Simulated assay, not measured.
Amino acid sequence: MLEEDIRITKSREAIVQAMDTLLEQKPFRKITVNDICRTAIVGRTTFYAHFEDKYKLISFILQQEQQRLEDIILNSPPEEVILNVLLDILENKKLYYNLFVAEVSDELQRLLQDTFNSFFTNILSVCKSEGVQLACETLPPLVAFYTTGVVGMIMWWTETDFSMPAEEVTSCLSSLLGYLWE
Protein backbone atom coordinates (compact mmCIF):
# COMPACT_ATOMS: atom_id res chain seq x y z
CA MET A 1 0.00 0.00 0.00
CA LEU A 2 2.78 2.46 0.92
CA GLU A 3 4.58 1.73 -2.35
CA GLU A 4 1.42 2.57 -4.28
CA ASP A 5 1.05 5.85 -2.36
CA ILE A 6 4.62 6.80 -3.28
CA ARG A 7 3.93 6.13 -6.98
CA ILE A 8 0.77 8.22 -6.82
CA THR A 9 2.61 11.05 -5.10
CA LYS A 10 5.49 10.91 -7.58
CA SER A 11 3.08 10.92 -10.54
CA ARG A 12 1.26 13.98 -9.18
CA GLU A 13 4.57 15.76 -8.52
CA ALA A 14 5.76 14.93 -12.05
CA ILE A 15 2.56 16.35 -13.54
CA VAL A 16 2.82 19.55 -11.48
CA GLN A 17 6.51 19.92 -12.33
CA ALA A 18 5.72 19.36 -16.02
CA MET A 19 3.18 22.21 -15.96
CA ASP A 20 5.73 24.45 -14.19
CA THR A 21 8.32 23.60 -16.84
CA LEU A 22 5.90 24.23 -19.69
CA LEU A 23 4.79 27.55 -18.18
CA GLU A 24 8.43 28.65 -18.33
CA GLN A 25 8.25 28.12 -22.10
CA LYS A 26 4.81 29.19 -23.28
CA PRO A 27 1.45 30.66 -22.21
CA PHE A 28 -1.07 28.46 -20.41
CA ARG A 29 -3.58 28.53 -23.28
CA LYS A 30 -1.02 26.90 -25.60
CA ILE A 31 -0.27 24.02 -23.23
CA THR A 32 -2.15 20.79 -23.91
CA VAL A 33 -2.71 17.72 -21.76
CA ASN A 34 -0.53 15.85 -24.27
CA ASP A 35 2.29 18.35 -23.65
CA ILE A 36 1.94 17.83 -19.91
CA CYS A 37 1.92 14.03 -20.19
CA ARG A 38 4.90 14.00 -22.54
CA THR A 39 6.91 16.32 -20.24
CA ALA A 40 5.92 14.41 -17.08
CA ILE A 41 6.49 11.05 -18.78
CA VAL A 42 3.06 9.78 -17.75
CA GLY A 43 0.10 8.52 -19.72
CA ARG A 44 -3.14 10.41 -20.18
CA THR A 45 -4.90 7.93 -17.89
CA THR A 46 -2.45 8.81 -15.11
CA PHE A 47 -2.98 12.52 -15.73
CA TYR A 48 -6.77 12.15 -15.55
CA ALA A 49 -6.48 10.03 -12.40
CA HIS A 50 -5.03 13.11 -10.69
CA PHE A 51 -6.69 16.05 -12.44
CA GLU A 52 -9.96 16.49 -14.32
CA ASP A 53 -8.29 18.77 -16.89
CA LYS A 54 -5.48 21.30 -17.25
CA TYR A 55 -7.65 23.93 -15.51
CA LYS A 56 -7.93 21.81 -12.35
CA LEU A 57 -4.16 21.32 -12.50
CA ILE A 58 -3.52 25.06 -12.75
CA SER A 59 -5.96 25.65 -9.92
CA PHE A 60 -3.95 23.22 -7.77
CA ILE A 61 -0.71 25.02 -8.71
CA LEU A 62 -2.23 28.43 -7.89
CA GLN A 63 -3.28 27.15 -4.47
CA GLN A 64 0.30 26.01 -3.86
CA GLU A 65 1.64 29.39 -5.00
CA GLN A 66 -0.77 31.21 -2.73
CA GLN A 67 0.43 29.07 0.18
CA ARG A 68 4.06 29.91 -0.70
CA LEU A 69 3.28 33.63 -0.74
CA GLU A 70 1.41 33.35 2.57
CA ASP A 71 4.45 31.56 4.05
CA ILE A 72 6.65 34.45 2.89
CA ILE A 73 4.27 36.89 4.55
CA LEU A 74 4.15 34.92 7.80
CA ASN A 75 7.93 34.55 7.98
CA SER A 76 8.98 38.08 7.02
CA PRO A 77 9.06 41.24 9.11
CA PRO A 78 6.19 43.50 7.95
CA GLU A 79 8.50 46.03 6.30
CA GLU A 80 10.15 43.26 4.24
CA VAL A 81 6.98 41.42 3.16
CA ILE A 82 6.46 43.33 -0.07
CA LEU A 83 10.11 43.07 -1.12
CA ASN A 84 10.17 39.34 -0.40
CA VAL A 85 6.97 38.77 -2.39
CA LEU A 86 8.33 40.84 -5.30
CA LEU A 87 11.63 38.94 -5.24
CA ASP A 88 9.73 35.65 -5.31
CA ILE A 89 7.71 36.84 -8.32
CA LEU A 90 10.90 38.08 -10.01
CA GLU A 91 12.61 34.75 -9.37
CA ASN A 92 9.73 33.06 -11.21
CA LYS A 93 9.13 35.88 -13.71
CA LYS A 94 8.85 33.67 -16.81
CA LEU A 95 6.21 31.55 -15.10
CA TYR A 96 4.30 34.61 -13.87
CA TYR A 97 4.45 36.23 -17.28
CA ASN A 98 3.26 33.15 -19.19
CA LEU A 99 0.62 32.28 -16.64
CA PHE A 100 -0.76 35.69 -15.83
CA VAL A 101 0.25 38.46 -18.21
CA ALA A 102 0.00 36.53 -21.46
CA GLU A 103 -3.66 35.78 -20.79
CA VAL A 104 -5.18 35.38 -17.33
CA SER A 105 -4.14 38.33 -15.21
CA ASP A 106 -7.43 38.09 -13.29
CA GLU A 107 -6.10 34.91 -11.67
CA LEU A 108 -2.91 36.64 -10.52
CA GLN A 109 -4.94 39.53 -9.17
CA ARG A 110 -7.21 37.18 -7.22
CA LEU A 111 -4.26 35.19 -5.85
CA LEU A 112 -2.46 38.34 -4.70
CA GLN A 113 -5.62 39.93 -3.29
CA ASP A 114 -6.42 36.87 -1.19
CA THR A 115 -2.84 36.77 0.07
CA PHE A 116 -2.49 40.47 0.91
CA ASN A 117 -6.01 40.74 2.32
CA SER A 118 -5.10 38.63 5.36
CA PHE A 119 -1.75 40.44 5.69
CA PHE A 120 -3.37 43.90 5.84
CA THR A 121 -6.17 42.67 8.09
CA ASN A 122 -3.56 41.54 10.62
CA ILE A 123 -1.38 44.67 10.35
CA LEU A 124 -4.32 47.09 10.59
CA SER A 125 -5.86 45.19 13.50
CA VAL A 126 -2.60 45.56 15.42
CA CYS A 127 -2.38 49.26 14.51
CA LYS A 128 -5.95 49.81 15.70
CA SER A 129 -5.40 47.92 18.97
CA GLU A 130 -2.28 50.01 19.63
CA GLY A 131 -4.23 53.24 19.18
CA VAL A 132 -2.78 54.27 15.80
CA GLN A 133 -5.05 56.82 14.14
CA LEU A 134 -6.29 55.09 10.99
CA ALA A 135 -7.85 56.88 8.03
CA CYS A 136 -11.03 54.87 8.58
CA GLU A 137 -12.39 53.27 11.75
CA THR A 138 -13.91 50.33 9.89
CA LEU A 139 -11.22 47.87 8.84
CA PRO A 140 -12.71 46.07 5.80
CA PRO A 141 -12.75 49.14 3.50
CA LEU A 142 -9.26 50.11 4.65
CA VAL A 143 -7.97 46.57 4.07
CA ALA A 144 -9.56 46.64 0.59
CA PHE A 145 -7.91 50.00 -0.16
CA TYR A 146 -4.40 48.88 0.81
CA THR A 147 -4.77 45.46 -0.78
CA THR A 148 -6.00 46.91 -4.06
CA GLY A 149 -3.17 49.45 -4.12
CA VAL A 150 -0.42 46.91 -3.50
CA VAL A 151 -1.91 44.35 -5.89
CA GLY A 152 -2.40 47.04 -8.54
CA MET A 153 1.25 48.04 -8.25
CA ILE A 154 2.40 44.40 -8.50
CA MET A 155 0.14 43.85 -11.53
CA TRP A 156 1.55 46.96 -13.20
CA TRP A 157 5.09 45.80 -12.44
CA THR A 158 4.42 42.33 -13.89
CA GLU A 159 2.63 43.68 -16.97
CA THR A 160 5.49 46.11 -17.71
CA ASP A 161 7.90 43.17 -17.70
CA PHE A 162 9.38 44.12 -14.31
CA SER A 163 10.40 47.57 -15.57
CA MET A 164 11.68 48.73 -12.16
CA PRO A 165 13.93 46.93 -9.69
CA ALA A 166 11.96 45.13 -6.95
CA GLU A 167 13.68 47.33 -4.36
CA GLU A 168 12.41 50.50 -6.06
CA VAL A 169 8.82 49.20 -6.21
CA THR A 170 9.13 48.23 -2.53
CA SER A 171 10.49 51.66 -1.63
CA CYS A 172 7.55 53.34 -3.37
CA LEU A 173 5.02 51.11 -1.64
CA SER A 174 6.78 51.46 1.71
CA SER A 175 6.56 55.25 1.43
CA LEU A 176 2.84 54.95 0.81
CA LEU A 177 2.34 52.44 3.63
CA GLY A 178 5.08 53.70 5.96
CA TYR A 179 3.05 54.33 9.09
CA LEU A 180 1.93 50.68 9.12
CA TRP A 181 5.50 49.54 9.89
CA GLU A 182 6.08 51.98 12.76
Results as ranks from 00 to 15, higher is better:
E107H: 10
Q66A: 13
Q133Y: 07
L99F: 06
E107W: 03
R68G: 02
N84K: 03
T148K: 12
I154Y: 09
I73S: 07
L112D: 15
V126Q: 10
F60Q: 09
K93R: 06
E70G: 00
C127N: 06
D88I: 00
L62A: 13
Q133C: 08
N117R: 09
E130Y: 06
K93W: 13
L99N: 05
F60Y: 13
L90W: 04
L57I: 04
V150F: 04
L95F: 15
T115Y: 05
S59W: 00
Q67R: 12
Q66L: 13
E91T: 05
G149S: 12
T115H: 12
Q109F: 10
L134R: 06
P78D: 13
L99G: 15
E103S: 04
L139Y: 05
L108V: 07
L62E: 09
L87E: 13
F120T: 02
G149F: 11
C127I: 01
I123N: 06
I123V: 11
E80H: 09
R68N: 06
E103H: 00
F100V: 01
S105N: 15
S125V: 00
L134V: 03
L142P: 06
L74K: 12
E70C: 02
D71N: 06
Q133S: 05
T148P: 01
S125L: 13
F116V: 10
Q113Y: 04
E91G: 10
T148H: 12
N92Y: 08
K56W: 14
R68V: 15
G152N: 05
G152L: 00
S76R: 03
E130A: 03
P140H: 07
K56I: 02
S129L: 11
I123W: 04
F116H: 09
P77L: 10
D71Q: 10
G152T: 00
P140E: 14
G149L: 08
L134A: 10
S129G: 04
T121R: 08
F60M: 09
L99K: 09
D71P: 00
N122L: 08
V85Q: 08
Q109Y: 04
P78H: 04
F120Y: 15
E137Q: 00
R68D: 10
V151D: 07
V150L: 02
L112Y: 09
D114M: 01
N92M: 00
N117V: 05
I73R: 07
L134N: 01
K128I: 08
S105L: 02
E80I: 00
K56Q: 03
F100K: 12
S76D: 10
K94Y: 12
D71K: 10
M153W: 11
I73C: 07
F120W: 07
E107M: 11
F120Q: 01
D71I: 00
